[in-house]
Amino acid sequence: MKKKNVSYEEKESLKGKVTLVTGATGGIGSAICKRFAELGSFVYICDIKSTVELANYINEQYEEPRSMSVPCDISSKVKVKDMYQKISKEKEGVDILINNAAVHGKGDFPEISYDEFLKTIKIDLSGAMYCTLMAIPYMKKNRWGRILFTGAPLSSSGIPCPYLAGKSGFIGLAKYISKKYKEYDIRTFTLVLRHCDTPMIRRVMKARGVDVEKGIEELNKKSRTGKMITPKEVAEIYVYFSLAKSPKINGLTLLSDGGITYL
C-alpha cells in the first residue's frame, strides 16, 4: 500500500472528523473527498452515481480505510434518512457536511416545465436541506460542526430559476445556521463560484459542439486572474475554513469568481 506524502503541518489535521460530501463524484466533489481524506478525515462519499470507484481509489492510498461509498438520491428524504442511519451506526454522526450536489436544470422562465423545475429544485435545495437538518442534531450534541456550501452568485446570467433558488438558499441557510447555532460551535461557510475548471464544464462544451480548448481559454480570459479556479483550489479553501480556529470565522460567503461579478 502506498502512503501519501503530506507536509508535517497539515498531516492528520482533520483526523477523527467525519465528513459527508454530496455531489462527490464530480470534479469539485472528488477533489474535496481526496483532500479531506489526505488530512485524516473519514469521508462519506455521496452521489446519485456509484461512488465505489472513488472510495476504492482513496482507500488504496492509506493503510487504513478513509472513505466509504454512500450512493444516495438526496432529493428523497427517505433515502437521506437511510444514509444518515448507516453513518450513525458506523461513526455516530457527521462532523463536517459539504453540500456540494447540484444539477443545472434546463430552460428559461416561463418555458421551463413544472417537472423540470421540481426535479432540479428538489436536488439543489431540498436535498441540501435534508442533509443539513439530519446533520445538526449530532453536531449540537457534539458541540462542534462545520456545514459548507458550494454556492453561485445571484448575478449569474442565464441560470435556470430552480438552480439559483438552491444556490441562493445556501447563502441564507448558512447565515441563519451561523447565528442560530453559534453557541454549539456549528459554523458555516459558503463558497460562491461562477466558473470552475471541472471535467463537467469540458463535457458540456463538447456536447454543445464548442471547441473545448478555445472555450476554456475564453472562460479563463473572462476572469481578471487570467484563469478559472480549479477543483483542487476549491478543496483547499474548504480545508482552510474547516480548520479555522476563530469562532468569528462563521457565516461567511466568499465570492471566488475571478472578479467577474464586480470588476
Binding site: 437538518l133 430552480p162 439559483l164 441564507g172
Partner: peptide, 28 residues
C-alpha cells in the same frame, strides 16, 4: 443582516425565493 425571527425552514425557503425570483427577473 438576516433576522432570527423564524425557523431554519423559513430562512431556507425565503432565501430560495430570492434566487428563484432573481433568475425569473432576468428572464422576463
Amino acid at each position: 443582516d438576516i433576522t432570527l425571527n423564524g425557523s431554519i425552514h423559513e430562512s431556507a425557503c425565503s432565501s430560495g425565493i430570492t434566487g428563484m425570483m432573481t433568475s425569473i427577473a432576468a428572464d422576463i
